[in-house]
Design a protein around this nucleic acid. Structure first.
Length: 402
DNA sequence: AATTTCACG
DNA sequence: ACGTACGTGAAATTA
């Protein structure tokens, strides 16, 4: 699986992805104006100059000078912590906080994406060429660097503007994005052979709503927005071995309530609990856990006398087979896509992989043919008791293709 | 080189 | 009493 992938990744790196350099340059100027304004406003609250980009200096300004709160958290090196989750908790303590959050977001987008990307554009073909690393991660995922094209913004409105700048190679092409739907939850359903979760996927239910219906004992049609949202948080947390503390923190509820939700979850999805316990046990007995393609992750810390260290290893034992099997499946799919395209004369190219998504630069005359080929290859990459569903979209840019 | 923060799945 | 959800890469600051 890995060896045929080498040439496929080489080809994807070589093809690259086109970007709208002029669009990015204009967006950079727009962000700069807002940043200058925000910086001025932030500094107006104190009578001395400081570097807003320095977490150390910012922490001192907030907690020593402005005294926005008595309960400041410190990092392990003794500085005041100023990360987003901390600042959000103090949002109502001082009007400077929202300005800092806004400043941070803009600074991040500008310095990490908007400004560097045009400079990385190849002078000959005008496209961005990432490097995919095949032997970096602990789980079997790929990683991407120089530039990292696996963390291009999409969540925030301003981030979406950046994703829009990723475009087809010329006017005759469009972008096709093909995503696995809920691949990690489908894998845990299949690996644990959990009757209830398998049924939800086989019947094509909205998995988070179906989970809410089970956990909160209500009919599927009567699941509230809050119930679905809580169930979604549990479904995600489960994959990572999250406990009551984490869920409580995440949902802003008490640990007691969170514990109740998790207990209810494991009552309904009993085999998932069994599977998770087995993963930890396997790690203890063998020293490693493995994916569906038998990729191993060794976990020597699983026997540590230090409960914190051991806890990390236990969560790795749960998560690695799931995340790693998802990586296996998309790699198998990439090989299958390549194989299917090889004997055609398609002008279209596979250009990006983002963990559960493949992106294609597709010629306008080949859209229907490529969509069918990709769907077949991805959904058929492996046979499981739950269907592997793929969502596909065509667009004038990468955002549009979602 | 380490730390902190934050972008993604 | 302690720490608490997995996997990455990049930028800016600080040691």
């Amino acid at each position: 699986m890995e060896m045929p992938l080498v040439e496929i990744l080489r080809s994807m790196e070589f093809e690259g992805v086109a970007i709208d350099v002029e669009g990015l340059t204009n967006y950079s100027k727009e962000l700069e104006l807002t940043l200058v304004d925000l910086e001025k406003q932030i500094k107006s609250f104190v009578d001395f100059d400081f570097n807003v980009d320095s977490p150390k200096q910012l922490g001192d300004v907030l907690f020593d000078h402005l005294k926005i709160s008595a309960k400041a958290k410190k990092t392990k090196t003794g500085q005041y912590a100023t990360s987003e989750d901390i600042l959000v908790k103090h949002e109502k303590d001082h009007e400077i906080i929202p300005m800092i959050l806004d400043y941070r977001q803009l600074r991040k987008l500008k310095s990490t994406y908007v400004d560097p990307l045009p400079t990385l554009c190849d002078a000959v073909d005008g496209r961005i060429h990432t490097s995919y690393m095949q032997t970096v991660t602990a789980t079997g995922r790929l990683s991407s660097n120089s530039p990292n094209l696996q963390n291009i913004p999409i969540r925030s409105a301003r981030g979406k503007e950046i994703r829009k700048m990723f475009i087809p190679r010329n006017e005759d092409f469009k972008l096709l994005a093909a995503d696995y739907s809920q691949i990690e939850l489908r894998i845990i359903a299949a690996l644990s052979d959990d009757k209830n979760m398998i049924e939800a996927f086989q019947k094509g239910y909205d998995i988070h709503a179906a989970t809410a219906a089970k956990v909160f004992h209500v009919p599927l049609e009567e699941v509230s927005r809050d119930q679905r949202s809580s169930a979604k948080a549990v479904n995600f947390g489960i994959i990572y071995g999250q406990g009551a503390f984490g869920l409580a923190q995440n949902l802003g509820i008490s640990r007691t309530i969170a514990k109740g939700i998790i207990d209810g979850y494991f009552e309904q999805y009993a085999s998932i609990k069994t599977y998770m316990d087995k993963a930890v046990n396997d790690a203890r007995e063998n020293g490693y856990v493995e994916t569906i393609m038998k990729r191993r992750r060794y976990l020597p810390d699983i026997t540590s006398a230090n409960a914190v260290v051991r806890g990390f290893a236990e969560r790795n034992a749960i998560n690695a087979p799931i995340q790693g099997s998802a990586a296996d499946i998309i790699k198998l799919a990439m090989v299958a896509v390549h194989e299917a395209m090889k004997n055609t004369e398609l002008k279209s190219k596979m250009i990006l992989q983002v963990h559960d998504e493949l992106v294609f630069d597709v010629h306008k005359d080949e859209i229907d043919e490529l969509k069918a080929l990709v769907k077949t290859a991805m959904e058929g990459a492996i046979k499981m008791v739950v269907p592997m569903e793929v969502e596909m979209e065509i667009g004038e840019n990468w955002l549009d293709a979602h």
